[in-house]
Simulated scan of single mutants.
Amino acid sequence: MAEIVFEDLVRAHRRELLVHCYRLLGSVTDAEDVVQEVLLAAWRGLDDFGHRASVRTWLYRIATNRCLNALRDRARRPPPAPVPPFTPPTPSRFGELTWLQPYPDTLLEGMPATDPGPEARYGAREAIELVFVTALQRVPPRQAAALVLCDVLGYPAAETATMLDLTPTAVKGLLQRARASVDRDRDGVSRQPAPGDTDLVRRFADAYSADDIDTVVALLTDDVWLSMPPAPHEYHGLAAVTGFLRAGADWRAGHRFRLHHVGANGQPALACAFDDGRPAGLFVLTLAEGRIRGLTRFLDERLLRYL
C-alpha cells in the first residue's frame, strides 16, 4: 500500500525533476542518477513529509539539494577527452564544460503543463536551450540553483530561501549575480523559431553531408562558435571554424557523413553517421537571424540512445 501511495505522489513529477537536474548538472546521464537518489530519499522521508508543502515543492527541494551535493562531491572531474582522429587546427581556446550533454526532446514529451507563476523570467523553451544550460554551468552552483528555482520555476525568493536553507536577502544577492552572468552569456541568442529555420537546417545538412564546406560557411554568422564535448577544443569566429571544418573534410577524404534530423534542447539537431553506418556524434545548432551561430557537436555516440 505504501508503494502505491508513493508512486501516486511522484508519478507526475518524474520528467520535470529530470529536466530540473539536467539544468543544474548539464548532463542527462548525471541527472538520471540524481533523480534516482531523489526518489529514494523521498521514499525514505515519506513519513516525515506530512504535506507541510506541496509534493512538487518537497521534491524540488530534495532534487535541488541533491544536485548541489553532487556538484560539490564530484568537484567536476572532467570526462576523458577523446583523441582526435586527425591533427586539428590550433583551437581558439580550451573549454572547461566538457561534461555538457544534449537533452533529447523525446524526454520533454508528456511533461505536465505547470504555470511557473509571475516570478518566472524564462519560458519553458528557452530554459532548456543549450546556451541557457551552458550559461548555468558557468555560475557557482548556489547561484544557478537560486536562478532556476526563482526565474524558471517561479518560486518566490522567500520560498526559495527555505528550499536552500538561506535567508531571503542571501537569495536576492545570488539572483542578482546569477542573472548578470547568465544574461551576458546568452547574449540575446534565444528567440522563437523563424519561418526559414527548417530550410536553413536542411541546407546545412545537405552541404555538410556533401563536404561542401563553402556552402556550410555561407550559412554561418561571423561570430559563430564550434565546440565538441567531451573534447575541450573550441573554435570562435568564422575563420577559426572554417579552418576546422576544412581540416575535417580533408581527413574524411571522400568518406561522407549522413545526417538525419532529431530533436534536442528544443533546437534543431542532427545525428551523424559515416556512410558505412558507424555513428559519428550529434550536432545541436544554435540559430540567430537566419543563420547558424553555434555548432555544438557531441562526440559521444552513446548519447544517440536517448534520441
Rank of each mutant, 00 (worst) to 15 (best):
260 H>N: 08
28 V>G: 07
264 A>K: 09
168 P>K: 06
216 V>Q: 09
113 A>L: 00
66 R>W: 00
175 L>E: 12
100 L>E: 04
189 V>P: 10
255 H>P: 08
11 R>E: 13
43 W>P: 11
79 P>N: 00
181 S>I: 11
160 T>P: 03
277 G>T: 06
289 E>T: 07
143 Q>F: 07
30 D>N: 10
147 L>M: 09
7 E>D: 14
148 V>A: 02
295 L>Q: 01
11 R>P: 03
6 F>G: 09
165 D>Q: 15
255 H>M: 12
222 D>H: 06
187 D>Y: 12
154 G>H: 09
154 G>S: 07
26 G>P: 03
76 R>Q: 06
67 C>G: 03
218 A>W: 08
228 M>P: 03
272 C>P: 07
69 N>T: 04
36 Q>S: 13
72 R>G: 00
205 A>V: 05
76 R>K: 05
19 V>R: 12
139 V>T: 07
303 L>R: 07
165 D>S: 15
59 L>C: 00
182 V>L: 09
286 T>D: 08
112 P>Y: 02
31 A>N: 02
184 R>M: 13
305 R>F: 08
190 S>V: 14
71 L>R: 03
189 V>F: 14
236 H>D: 14
179 R>G: 14
8 D>A: 15
181 S>Y: 11
123 G>K: 04
70 A>Y: 05
79 P>F: 00
125 R>A: 14
59 L>N: 05
214 D>K: 09
195 P>L: 13
87 T>Y: 00
217 V>W: 07
189 V>H: 14
92 S>V: 03
109 E>N: 01
230 P>S: 05
213 I>N: 12
45 G>E: 08
294 G>S: 05
83 V>L: 00
58 W>P: 03
272 C>Y: 12
289 E>V: 04
131 V>T: 13
15 R>Q: 07
214 D>I: 03
146 A>L: 05
299 L>S: 06
50 G>V: 08
239 A>Q: 11
121 R>Y: 02
240 A>D: 15
135 A>M: 08
195 P>K: 10
102 P>M: 00
119 E>Y: 02
180 A>H: 14
250 D>Y: 07
145 A>M: 04
56 R>L: 04
169 T>A: 11
206 D>A: 15
266 G>M: 09
22 Y>H: 08
46 L>Q: 14
155 Y>N: 04
37 E>W: 06
210 A>Q: 06
42 A>W: 01
176 Q>T: 14
98 T>Q: 01
153 L>N: 07
274 F>D: 10
7 E>Q: 15
201 V>E: 10
148 V>K: 02
105 D>I: 02
212 D>M: 03
294 G>Y: 01
250 D>Q: 11
196 G>N: 12
83 V>Y: 02
215 T>I: 05
213 I>P: 11
16 E>L: 06
300 D>Y: 08
102 P>H: 01
198 T>I: 11
160 T>V: 04
93 R>N: 02
33 D>N: 13
239 A>M: 04
52 R>T: 15
232 P>L: 01
